[in-house]
Write a protein that binds this DNA or RNA. Structure first.
Lengths: 100, 100, 100, 100
DNA sequence: GCTACTCGGAAGGCGC
DNA sequence: GCGCCTTCCGAGTAGC
């Protein structure tokens, strides 16, 4: 916290009590709200990660090899990424040529 | 390759070649289904990751430092984990002492 | 430095002076040698990075768009990675089936 | 797209359509050559990265902690950069004072 | 100044 | 159960 925005982050200290508008409480609430939204989303993300693990577990229980499955998933993902990359290239070509 | 399930991965072996045409299609469908479920979940997970990035972005636009926010989130997460561990430990203790 | 190899890292302290063979100097030289090898390699790596930048610069000077070029390079790289992944998948299939 | 070089990317524009077919093949070869030079250099860069990893691996096998070694390397690098800056500063000073 | 990419570090899953 | 390896996350760097 040095060269960043002046008086940022959290409006260090209580000096704002001196200012006309008592906004510190609102600021805190805002930050708090952001944090909580993030934590909520992180929680959902973790649940999904667990769900995924469970699916691999089910598949394994039936005799499929998770390792192979992971490789397949990766390959398919690479496919779509490659495709997206190609499309992105076209976009950038068009931009370079003035066809926005 | 020893303790692994025999006849794994993908219906390995020749038995299915021996039987009329028993279930290969169904097996494929099953694997395919697993893969798709996983991909679906992975997709949702990625969306959440993006959502989280957006929240950090919003906060940043208002003047909060994402880097610090991340630290806060990590710390709070560690706190709850620590607390959960402690509570779990208490449960163990109680069990050990007969206070179920 | 806690659960790691006992008395490691750098043979903490001077107690080795007590041991029959005064090897500390050799140990230091060894570590020093590793560090210098690494620094040498890092140096070469940085030079290559600069060379790459220069090539993009040349191309740009002639009218090629570095951004596009980078995308092309990335795509081609993804191609080879995809291919490698496919081959790796085959290997893992073979392993699962016992064809080591 | 405004500040970009006009006539970019790949011989943009219509002139090449106008001329019989003068140089398109050569242009392609040129771009291709750039790309290949870059890929060559990137390849060497990757090899060096692997070499570096190997050195850390060797050191680790003997009991040195790679993590600490990395810290040392970083610190030494900062030292030389700092020293270079200082020397550069001295040169500037000398120039300013007429001690070329 | 911001964004995107690359690199290093940490954690989790897998195999032995 | 431990160690290895892959994968995910965060940090630093470079380009626009």
């Amino acid at each position: 916290m040095s060269e960043k925005e002046p008086g940022i982050g959290h409006n260090s200290g209580k000096d704002n009590a001196a200012k006309p508008f008592p906004k510190q409480g609102e600021q805190d609430a805002r930050l708090r709200s952001f944090i909580e939204r993030i934590e909520r989303l992180e929680g959902e993300k973790s649940e999904l990660a667990e769900d995924i693990k469970e699916v691999y577990g089910e598949a394994k229980a039936i005799g499929y090899d998770p390792k192979i499955m992971r490789k397949i998933v990766r390959m398919r993902k690479m496919d779509v990424e490659k495709r997206q990359e190609e499309e992105a290239l076209i976009v950038v070509y068009k931009g370079a040529v003035g066809l926005d």
